[in-house]
């Protein structure tokens, strides 16, 4: 995808007039390709501070891809992502992440508490062992999600919702200011859903920002105050009350854009050269 670099890559967004350095997350002109086929087209987004942001869109709209591209987990073909006006590398300690539950092997020999401790590893640093204070912090985080009695439980003995809460507790243990959560509400029980919502409220109360990939449209107005509607490109973004409209939803979910799909395939073919 190098072929799309017409101009020297921007190294900083600070010279862009519409950019505000206080924004926890600014995304500029990000395109992401899987196997040379673009799945996200020129994403432009600026997250407001102190807010709960839902990313909604149909399956395959690139919601998870968007989060991963922000976190440098997958390469971006073009574009720039900044956190509080600086690169991800510089702000890493201020950012927390809750991956999708399916992304790990839950049969791994590890207890809930040990998983949560992983959120502290960055602060502990290379080679140093996990100390008691970190363990206590981990327990505290487990308590916040109502899982303190399962601390010593093996993760494969937890239900899906409980596993999700362990992941959430791990992110809390990171003590970040900006959180990315990938489908935390997917397939969880009511207790977990309440617990996650409680944590979200609490984080917001502490002046933090949370970006959540969300699939249940009916709860968006209840849980979130901002929304980013995504379907391979940004359809709309802004306060839920303003942009979460039927019209925008129709645009977001109104089927795939066959032409965009087609040209994506054409690009992939040109890059891969098959057939």
């Amino acid at each position: 995808m190098k072929l799309f670099q017409h101009q020297p890559e921007l190294t900083s967004l600070s010279d862009r007039p519409e950019h505000s350095p206080e924004s926890p997350l600014s995304v500029h002109s990000v395109t992401v390709a899987y196997h040379e086929k673009p799945v996200l087209w020129d994403i432009e987004y600026e997250a407001p501070r102190h807010s709960l942001i839902a990313i909604v869109g149909p399956n395959g709209a690139g919601k998870s891809t968007f989060i991963k591209a922000c976190l440098d987990l997958i390469p971006r073909a073009t574009g720039l992502v900044e956190f509080w006006g600086k690169s991800y590398r510089d702000q890493r300690t201020r950012i927390g992440y809750v991956p999708q539950r399916e992304s790990v092997d839950w049969d791994f020999p590890i207890s809930a508490e040990e998983v949560v401790c992983m959120g502290r590893y960055r602060k502990i640093g290379w080679f140093r062992p996990i100390t008691r204070s970190h363990r206590e912090k981990a327990l505290e985080c487990l308590e916040q999600v109502g899982m303190e009695s399962f601390a010593k439980r093996q993760i494969n003995q937890l239900s899906g919702g409980q596993q999700q809460r362990v992941f959430l507790a791990r992110a809390l243990a990171q003590e970040a200011e900006l959180y990315f959560m990938d489908e935390p509400f997917a397939g969880v029980d009511a207790a977990t859903e309440r617990s996650i919502v409680g944590v979200l409220e609490q984080l917001k109360g502490e002046g933090k920002t949370v970006v959540v990939v969300h699939h249940d449209l009916s709860t968006v107005p209840e849980y979130f105050d901002h929304v980013l509607m995504l379907n391979a490109r940004v359809i709309a973004s802004g306060p839920v009350r303003e942009v979460f409209t039927d019209e925008n939803l129709k645009k977001t979910y109104g089927g795939r854009l066959s032409l965009l799909e087609e040209v994506g395939e054409a690009i992939a073919r040109a890059g891969r050269g098959v057939r």
């Binding site: 791994f108 998983v115 590893y121 080679f127 062992p129």
Partner: peptide, 22 residues
């Protein structure tokens, strides 16, 4: 022994490890 924590991290959840800056 020294790297128990790092090894455990990448074995269990490589993606999180990378997002956490390891």
């Amino acid at each position: 022994t020294l790297l128990l924590k790092e090894f455990r991290l990448v074995c269990f959840d490589e993606e999180f490890a990378r997002s956490d800056g390891w």
